[in-house]
């Protein structure tokens, strides 16, 4: 056996490698392909399950979707029942959520990114808590909403405002986290440039940093809304009604929402109501896909490479 003069003791390894140069196509390529096939299989398991669910729901639900379905109120008779009050309730809720989370989320993110001194313990407490709050189950927020918003200090009753505020609490941590990321993505040199021109910190933030981070913040807000739109548990706890035969007219109206309507119909024994639930799920999915599409479009359209 030849001894490699440069690396004594490695000659056998070297010979293996040299021998392997010729046989690579047989042994290694097969292994590579098996691994890729395995990965594809595992990926497709998730996709197939999701696809089957969508197709099943679509087959059940799409025949029931009509203008009448979209413009009728719930009813004890399945052929007359519709989701107008649920859609309107959901829109009202989303309006409240948007009005609450946009200013609160951006303000908190700006404070934490631009003003908070991370060496102070209270700022670290805020930061850790926001991270943790994002992982708290939404039903816990429902209990909180029931205790402090519906009853307790705010005492708003089972109204659109109470439901919207509760949903805002659910998604606020996510809004704050995504807004912080969007603000952090603006390079410090932009802020330096503005400050060097004699801008105050507020002018630098308001005229340069915030406009540059708006697309990222908007994406985060839309994704948060699309999470809030599907939330059911907190709304059940704050006592949203499931049978509401009128649209909300103000912030203190009683209300229902799409996921609640679905939940209520699913629990009916009558098969026809099951089909209505499937139809409402399709409507909710379409709204969700539209919201997410807007978010993706915003991100791609305004994404900036610094």
């Amino acid at each position: 056996m030849a001894v490699d003069p440069l690396l004594p003791g490695t000659s056998s390894v070297r010979e293996d490698v040299n021998a392997g140069l010729g046989s690579r196509e047989t042994k290694h390529l097969v292994r590579d392909q098996v691994f890729v096939a395995l990965l594809l299989l595992l990926t497709s398991v998730g996709l197939i399950v999701l696809g089957a669910l969508l197709i099943d729901t679509g087959l059940d639900g799409i025949p029931s979707i009509s203008m009448d379905f979209l413009t009728s109120f719930p009813s004890a008779f399945p052929e007359k029942a519709g989701i107008e009050s649920a859609i309107m309730g959901t829109l009202w809720l989303m309006g409240v959520v948007a009005l609450v989370i946009i200013p609160l989320g951006i303000a908190t993110a700006l404070y934490l990114e631009e003003y908070a001194d991370p060496s102070k313990w209270w700022n670290r407490v805020i930061e850790v808590n926001i991270q943790n709050l994002a992982a708290v189950p939404s039903i816990v927020y429902g209990i909180l909403g029931l205790a402090y918003i519906v009853r307790g200090p705010l005492d708003l009753g089972r109204t659109v405002l109470a439901g919207g505020l509760t949903l805002s609490l659910v998604v606020l941590p996510v809004v704050i986290i995504t807004a912080r990321e969007a603000i952090r993505a603006v390079p410090p040199s932009i802020k330096e440039g503005a400050l060097a021109l004699g801008a105050t910190q507020w002018q630098a933030i308001w005229r340069q940093i915030l406009p540059s981070s708006i697309p990222g913040i908007a994406t985060g807000v839309i994704l948060s809304l699309s999470r809030a739109i599907g939330e059911t548990a907190p709304l059940i706890l704050v006592g949203a009604a499931t049978f509401v035969a009128f649209n909300p007219t103000s912030l203190d109206s009683p209300f229902t929402a799409l996921p609640l309507q679905i939940f209520s119909w699913i629990s009916q024994p009558n098969e026809d109501f099951q089909a209505l639930a499937a139809a409402a799920i399709v409507v909710l999915l379409v709204i969700l896909i539209l919201l997410n599409a807007v978010a993706i479009w915003l991100r791609n359209r305004y994404q900036r490479r610094w």
């Binding site: 390079p187 040199s189 932009i190 330096e192 440039g193 503005a194 060097a196 340069q208 540059s212 900036r304």
Partner: peptide, 10 residues
């Protein structure tokens, strides 16, 4: 002030 890396506003 002018910086090391050009930093125009976007």
């Amino acid at each position: 002030m002018v910086f090391q890396k050009p930093n125009p506003f976007p």
